[in-house]
């Protein structure tokens, strides 16, 4: 038989971070998960919870430019870091090129996994360690589940942006 005691509320911790370009200071419980803080405390509900176990990728955000599952990260770990969510991607009302490409290629259906897919796609395109061939991109995107199965169009959207970028950068063989 377990003894029951009243649990004192956890002491809040102050965390300073940059969120979507703006420096913010938040008070969070030491055990608070970044995903829950974004969604429940800060009202940024664009980042989705699909499994809460790092299995589906719907909660993908950028932490210092790297794609990470917000459900596997404590908010206190973000001290001094720059966190970007889907809400921080479009600038001045203009869709990010990846968002535009998702729209053009119909790279979604229900849209629930889309913020995570988009955040992974943006990080992937910035990561020069990841080659641009189809098989590599598919492998790199495999942490983001899409139950609607819009994978073919997601791939097309990513490769479309890659080609345009390559052309803009003056790549001759694009």
């Amino acid at each position: 038989m377990q003894e029951t005691t009243a649990h004192p509320p956890e002491a809040a911790v102050t965390v300073r971070l940059t969120l979507n370009g703006d420096p913010i200071t938040i008070e969070v419980s030491p055990s608070a998960i970044l995903l829950d803080v974004l969604r429940e405390q800060l009202g940024l509900t664009g980042t989705k919870k699909g499994c809460d176990h790092g299995q589906c990728g719907a909660c993908t955000v950028h932490v210092d430019g790297r794609a990470m599952n917000a459900c596997l990260r404590l908010a206190v770990m973000c001290e001094g870091q720059a966190v970007t969510t889907i809400e921080g991607l479009a600038e001045a009302g203009h869709l990010h090129p990846i968002q535009q490409a998702f729209l053009d290629h119909d790279a979604f259906q229900c849209g629930y996994c889309s913020p995570g897919q988009i955040m992974s796609a943006v990080a992937l395109l910035e990561d020069h360690r990841i080659a641009g061939d189809v098989a590599t991109v598919r492998e790199a995107m495999s942490g983001n589940l899409c139950r609607c199965g819009a994978y073919q169009n997601i791939l097309a959207a990513i490769q479309d942006v890659r080609l345009r970028r390559h052309a803009q950068e003056g790549g001759g063989d694009a």
């Binding site: 940024l44 509900t45 664009g46 889907i86 991607l89 869709l95 968002q99 979604f108 849209g111 629930y112």
Partner: peptide
């Protein structure tokens, strides 16, 4: 026709049930 709800879904603005508070 590009989806008329596309921008809301792709920017995180679409209000799914789980997003309501």
């Amino acid at each position: 026709t590009p989806r008329v709800d596309g921008v809301d879904k792709l920017t995180g603005r679409a209000d799914y049930t789980v997003d309501h508070r």
